[in-house]
Design a protein around this nucleic acid. Sequence first.
DNA 1: CTAGTTGCAAATCATTTGCACTTGC
DNA 2: GCAAGTGCAAATGATTTGCAACTAG
Lengths: 137, 137
Amino acid sequence: MTAETQELKDVGLKITHPRIKIMRILLTSEVRHVSAEDVYRLLLGNNEEVGLATVYRVLTQFESAGLVTRHHFEGGHSVFELSPEHHHDHIVCIKCGHVEEFADPDIEARQSEIAKRLGFELTDHDLNMYGICADCR
Amino acid sequence: MTAETQELKDVGLKITHPRIKIMRILLTSEVRHVSAEDVYRLLLGNNEEVGLATVYRVLTQFESAGLVTRHHFEGGHSVFELSPEHHHDHIVCIKCGHVEEFADPDIEARQSEIAKRLGFELTDHDLNMYGICADCR
DNA sequence: CTAGTTGCAAATCATTTGCACTTGC
DNA sequence: GCAAGTGCAAATGATTTGCAACTAG
């Protein structure tokens, strides 16, 4: 059993060709953060036939199953990544689109405190920084 | 000269009826964070005739001029607010859409450090938390 | 006067959905 | 076999744009 099918089985999703192919793209892509279009193009590049609508459906299912995490960066389209073992946030280069990840326990702790103080039961959060990376300066 | 026309003049935008009306909505709305549709509906409620396309154009011009700030919350549409004097972040209720603002110097400081460490020249950032507010529990 | 602005309708973009057809178990 | 999944094309919702008509300075 390959890694892709194992992942699918683990979350109780039926093992289908499109789901296997899409999971393989996510597992092997050099770029960790991809849009639905990116996945679709990568599939085409591998001569894999999967409809764009299916890519959207499958990514959404993967998200519901917790396999992938959806982000809302600036620019109007969703970006997906395999759900990280450990939570992290992002800094995105506005010139080249390069994404760096980071995790900061202090920030996380402060966030929880703030949510509690404001009376919110926190379900999710998204900290995105935008700037110009070293290579683009 | 009213507050609306002053704001427009200050940033060098021609004083037109739609721009005045839209700025007035932003200045007087009880809700600080509004979508383009919200602004459009508020205008209609005031019996003001402005096309939706113009609302989008004007909000985008206001953003370029620095008068308003655009946010990308979950849910697929942009949300605008008059540019705050002092930076703050947001926590959004996923049930009722209510938005609370907060500012935390510790988080801000950590962000700057992290950006510097990763070699980014920071231009912008967006920290959004999502949860269920006290009223919705 | 005339460059900038608006309204409207049509266009675009990302994403979703209806439905007849296929496939995994 | 049959419910679940897929492809395709059409629908959607947010936002943008082309263009002829208007208006601020």
